[in-house]
Write a protein that binds this DNA or RNA. Structure first.
Length: 549
RNA sequence: GGGUCCGUGGCCUAGUUUGGAUAAGGCACCGUCCUUCUAAGUCGGUGAUCGGGGGUUCAAAUCCCCCCGGGCCCGCCA
């Protein structure tokens, strides 16, 4: 089943004009104009037959939604009638409440994101995973997929063992808190060499763990839960909630693990008592150590098999350090194990600190909670400085929404492939291309609707700013499509900005609440449609729209 | 060393997948607009050899090759 958006696609209809004619053009020859010549441009470089192009122009002119169509240079410029855009959007939103409507797709998608080792609070380096993952899940969902989200909790590796051992050694008797666990974790790595290295400190625990020693399992899971609670609270503040937390320890002896080894049996190679699979690009990937214990890869494959049992599309959001790893699991699952499911990976580059590297272990982090707090203070100051005075409760809720939205926006707006260098002023920026810019326009639209009175819709000439706003609204499906196909949530951010700019132009040029019934009626309707669409799109990237700010 | 991704005005970010008409936003800087619906806004201005070099093409920020700079990976860690 192929996911689809339901709306009247003018672009497709223009493409249809070329079929059966003397020149054939593909949908990709028809572009959205970005230079101000028209709305759509049809590229005709490869067609020198002027008569045939003239014929095409005539056919396009015949379309009821086309206002103007001219052949100029090597392009055919097509302008769409504002009335057509208006009635398309109006009827879609009137009948279904959204634009574009979707065909409910029965395919089940699971997006795994965040999955950070529970060894400390979530920091700005890690949050990109959560922000991208959550937005991507929302985009799949908006597209009509049945979506679930998961966090794979690592409670079985060296890092959490070290945290547990560190807490025992350096915080004995103290309460099991995030601060104490983090302290123990950092201390034990500081003294690792003096204590005899990982072999002496961690390996015995790992061995007991995999036996399995149920009491140890429970204690470590308990410690992880404490840190995880803190991570969950932070994410929840950002409007991110993950449906299922799947514990790695659950796969130590699972059916799926047995299934992995069963399925890989013919492909598994021996190296002493260790076992590995050979990658076609030359690497050996180990699943079993010489001492018989299993590596993370084995448990993660079991986890992916578990996901494959319940979902059709399995999406992992991973940092660029896991790029080769993703290639490995993709190959093992699809080619070696021949699991008939779509495994997809969204790889993003890191957020770094200027000069320094982020590290939980070394204590060199900016926590997301700190970031939100700073943002809240900043926003609170701006709200207080405004003329219309809000009570302190309203002011604080505005500040929180602005802080959270700004942080999410400034992360999501960058192509996941590109690295981000963290800077305080950029992370919390409230001017220009930012979340508050979008939110503020929305708040102004609330005022417009509050102040005037409704009236009947009547057909009339639209101004250029009205047309431009309508056109931008019409383009929403294009952004949704591209964003989903290329797993680029940043494209939604770009769309939200351009829609907001179009609304601001409209706002400054077109008074809405005027005497004239026809003008007032259509303009108020345009504002309502804008609110529906901008809210829809903003929600995909976690911007919290406020009625007032 | 091998692999991989990135390099667009002083700074940040789109545009590269599918080559085409004036390279688009934002920040900063200079100037404009609050007795029309919220100035977190609007309008205008300064500022780009699209990292460098070669190639393909009627046409290259976009495709190919080489080089330079930076991130990440190259564990019987997770």
């Amino acid at each position: 089943m192929f996911p689809m958006l339901l709306y009247d696609d003018f672009r497709k209809k223009i493409a249809d004009c070329t079929s059966g004619g003397r020149i054939e053009l593909h949908r990709s020859d028809i572009e959205i104009d970005t230079r101000g010549f028209a709305d759509f441009v049809v590229k005709t470089f490869r067609h020198k037959d002027q008569a045939a192009i003239g014929e095409l122009v005539e056919r396009i002119r015949g379309l009821e939604f086309v206002e103007r169509c001219d052949h100029s240079g090597d392009y055919v410029n097509v302008s769409i009638r504002a009335e057509s855009l208006f009635s398309l959007l109006d009827s879609a939103i009137s009948s279904t409440g959204i634009f574009p409507d979707v065909f409910q797709d029965p395919e089940r998608v699971v997006v795994e994101h965040t999955s950070a080792n529970p060894t400390g609070p979530i920091h700005v380096g890690r949050i990109r995973n959560s922000i991208i993952g959550d937005s991507m899940a929302r985009i799949y969902s908006r597209y009509g997929y049945r979506v679930s989200t998961q966090y794979f909790v690592n409670d079985s590796g060296k890092q959490v063992m070290a945290m547990y051992a560190g807490f025992q050694r350096y915080c004995a008797g103290l309460p099991l808190s995030v601060e104490n666990l983090l302290h123990g974790y950092q201390e034990i790595y500081r003294h690792m060499d003096a204590l005899g290295g990982e072999d002496a400190v961690i390996s015995p625990l790992l061995k007991r763990y995999e036996t399995p020693d149920e009491a140890l399992l429970a204690e470590i899971k308990n410690a992880c839960s404490v840190v995880l609670k803190d991570i969950r609270d932070t994410m929840s503040r950002l409007g991110i909630s993950i449906e299922d937390y799947v514990w790695e320890s659950g796969f130590l002896q699972s059916e799926e693990l047995v299934e992995v080894f069963e399925s890989l049996k013919p492909k598994l190679k021996e190296d002493g008592d260790a076992r590995y699979v050979q990658m076609p690009w030359g690497k050996k990937e180990y699943l079993v150590r010489s001492d018989g214990t299993r590596l993370y890869l084995a448990r993660d494959l079991a986890y992916h098999l578990f996901k494959a049992h319940h979902f059709d599309v399995i999406v992992d959001v991973l940092g660029e350090d896991h790029k080769d790893y993703a290639r490995t699991i993709g190959h093992v699952l699809s080619d070696l194990m021949e699991v008939d499911r779509r495994f997809e990976f969204l790889i993003y580059s890191f957020i770094s600190l200027e000069g320094a590297k982020l590290s939980t272990r070394q204590g060199n982090i900016i926590t997301v909670n700190d970031l939100i707090e700073r943002g809240r203070e900043e926003a609170s100051r701006i709200v207080s400085g405004k003329e219309n005075s809000y009570d302190s409760k309203t002011r604080e809720s505005i500040a929180e929404a602005v802080a959270v939205s700004s942080i999410r926006f400034n992360v999501i707006r960058v192509n996941p492939q590109k690295a981000i260098v963290f800077r305080w002023d950029e992370a919390l920026s409230t001017e220009g291309d930012s979340a508050p810019f979008v939110m503020y326009s929305f708040a102004r639209s609330t005022s417009i609707l509050d102040k005037g009175t409704a009236s009947n819709l009547r057909k009339r000439q639209f101004d250029v700013e009205e047309k431009s706003l309508l056109w931008n609204m019409y383009l929403y499906p294009e952004s949704l499509e591209r964003s989903l196909a290329s797993k680029r949530p940043d494209l939604i951010a770009a769309y939200v900005l351009s829609l907001t700019k179009a609304f601001n132009d409209f706002y400054s040029s077109c008074q809405v609440n005027v005497q004239d019934d026809e003008v007032r009626g259509t303009r108020r309707r345009i504002v309502e449609m804008y609110r529906t669409i901008v809210k829809d799109a903003a929600d995909l990237i976690g911007i919290k729209m406020l009625e007032r700010m």
